[in-house]
Amino acid sequence: KRRTSFTPQALEILNAHFEKNTHPSGQEMTEIAEKLNYDREVVRVWFCNKRQALK
């Protein structure tokens, strides 16, 4: 499976959402994914990886 390359704009939006809520609901992740035109699973993994990076 290929790595997803996030655009700077997408990272800005993802980081803004992460600052508000580090554990978004499934519905929220779906909405973010649709807004950014990414697969929901990609957004889920991004949040998971971001949380791990802060440990």
Rank of each mutant, 00 (worst) to 15 (best):
Q27W: 08
W46K: 00
L36P: 02
E28P: 00
N21A: 06
A16T: 09
K35W: 04
H23D: 13
N37E: 10
T30E: 05
T4P: 08
Q27E: 14
R3Q: 10
Q52D: 09
R40F: 14
N49V: 08
V42K: 14
K1A: 07
I13E: 05
F47V: 01
L54S: 10
V43I: 06
F6L: 15
Q52K: 13
H17D: 08
K35T: 15
N49G: 08
C48N: 15
L54Q: 07
Q52G: 06
R40T: 12
A16E: 13
T22G: 13
P24V: 04
R51S: 07
E19T: 10
F18M: 01
H23L: 08
E34W: 06
R2Y: 15
L11F: 03
V43P: 00
R51E: 04
N49R: 08
F6W: 12
K1C: 15
E31A: 09
F47A: 01
H17E: 14
R51I: 06
V42I: 09
L54Y: 03
N21D: 08
F47D: 01
W46L: 00
T4S: 13
R40S: 11
K1E: 02
T22W: 07
A16L: 11
I13H: 07
K50D: 00
R3S: 13
W46N: 01
F47Y: 07
S25V: 06
C48V: 15
V45I: 10
E34M: 05
Y38F: 08
N37M: 15
A16N: 13
L14S: 00
K50P: 00
E34T: 12
Q9C: 04
Y38E: 14
F18A: 03
A16G: 11
E12R: 09
R51V: 07
G26I: 12
E31H: 14
E28W: 02
E34H: 15
N21F: 02
Q27D: 15
F47C: 01
I32P: 01
E19K: 08
L11T: 05
A10L: 03
H17C: 10
H23P: 00
R2M: 14
E12Q: 04
T7D: 03
K1H: 04
D39A: 10
F6A: 04
V42Y: 09
C48S: 14
R40E: 13
T22P: 13
Y38N: 03
A53T: 08
P24E: 00
R44G: 10
Y38I: 13
N49T: 06
K20F: 03
F47M: 02
F18V: 02
R44Q: 14
P24W: 04
G26K: 09
S25W: 00
G26M: 10
K20G: 08
R40W: 12
K50V: 02
V42A: 14
N21L: 02
R40D: 15
R2Q: 13
N15S: 07
V43Q: 00
Q9R: 15
T30Y: 05
E28A: 08
P8D: 14
L54A: 12
T4A: 10
L11P: 00
N37R: 11
T30K: 07
P24T: 02
D39G: 08
V45C: 06
V43S: 00
V42W: 08
K50I: 00
R44L: 06
S5L: 11
E31C: 03
P8G: 08
T4Y: 08
T30I: 10
K50H: 03
A53R: 07
D39H: 09
A33Q: 03
E19P: 00
A10W: 01
T30A: 11
E34Q: 07
E28L: 12
A16P: 01
E41H: 05
P8Y: 02
F47R: 00
I32M: 05
H17L: 12
H17P: 00
P8I: 07
R51W: 05
R44A: 12
A33T: 03
K1Y: 03
F18Q: 00
H23N: 12
Q27T: 13
H23Y: 05
Q9S: 06
L36A: 09
R3C: 05
R3L: 14
K35S: 11
K1W: 05
K50Q: 09
A10R: 01
A10G: 10
R3T: 08
K55G: 06
Q27I: 15
Q9D: 09
A53L: 10
E34G: 04
G26S: 10
V42H: 04
T22S: 13
F47E: 01
E12L: 03
T7M: 03
F6H: 05
E31W: 08
T30C: 07
L54K: 08
N15W: 04
I13W: 06
E19A: 14
E19D: 11
R51G: 05
W46Q: 01
K55Q: 03
E19N: 10
P24S: 02
E12A: 03
Q27S: 10
E12T: 12
R2C: 04
P8M: 14
Y38C: 13
E31R: 12
N15K: 08
L14K: 01
A33Y: 01
R40H: 10
R51M: 04
E28S: 04
D39M: 03
I13R: 08
G26N: 11
Q52S: 07
P8H: 07
H17V: 12
I13P: 00
F6I: 15
G26T: 14
S25C: 06
E41W: 04
R2I: 11
N15R: 06
L14R: 00
T7W: 03
E31D: 10
I32E: 02
E34I: 15
N37Y: 15
R2L: 13
E31T: 09
R3K: 12
K50M: 07
R40C: 10
L36Y: 02
A10D: 12
R44N: 06
N37T: 05
K35Q: 09
V43E: 01
H17A: 12
R3A: 08
H17S: 10
A10M: 06
E28Q: 07
Y38H: 07
E41G: 07
S25Q: 04
L14E: 00
H17Y: 10
T22F: 06
E41A: 06
K20R: 12
L54T: 06
W46A: 02
V45S: 15
A53Q: 14
Q27R: 13
N15L: 08
E41R: 09
T7A: 06
Q52A: 12
N21E: 12
K50L: 01
N15G: 09
F18E: 01
W46R: 01
F6G: 04
H17G: 04
Q52V: 07
V42F: 10
E19C: 10
T30W: 03
L36C: 10
E28T: 10
E41P: 01
G26H: 06
E41L: 02
R3M: 13
E12F: 15
I32D: 00
F6C: 08
S5F: 11
N15V: 04
F6D: 05
Q52T: 11
Q52P: 06
F47G: 01
V43A: 02
T22E: 09
K1I: 15
R44C: 10
T4C: 11
I32Y: 14
K20C: 05
E19F: 05
I13T: 12
V43K: 00
E31K: 04
P8F: 08
S25H: 15
P8L: 11
V43L: 06
V43D: 01
N21P: 00
P24F: 00
Q9M: 11
K50T: 06
R44S: 09
L54F: 06
S5T: 15
H23K: 11
H17N: 09
F6T: 08
G26Q: 03
A53I: 09
E41T: 10
N15T: 06
K20S: 10
N49I: 06
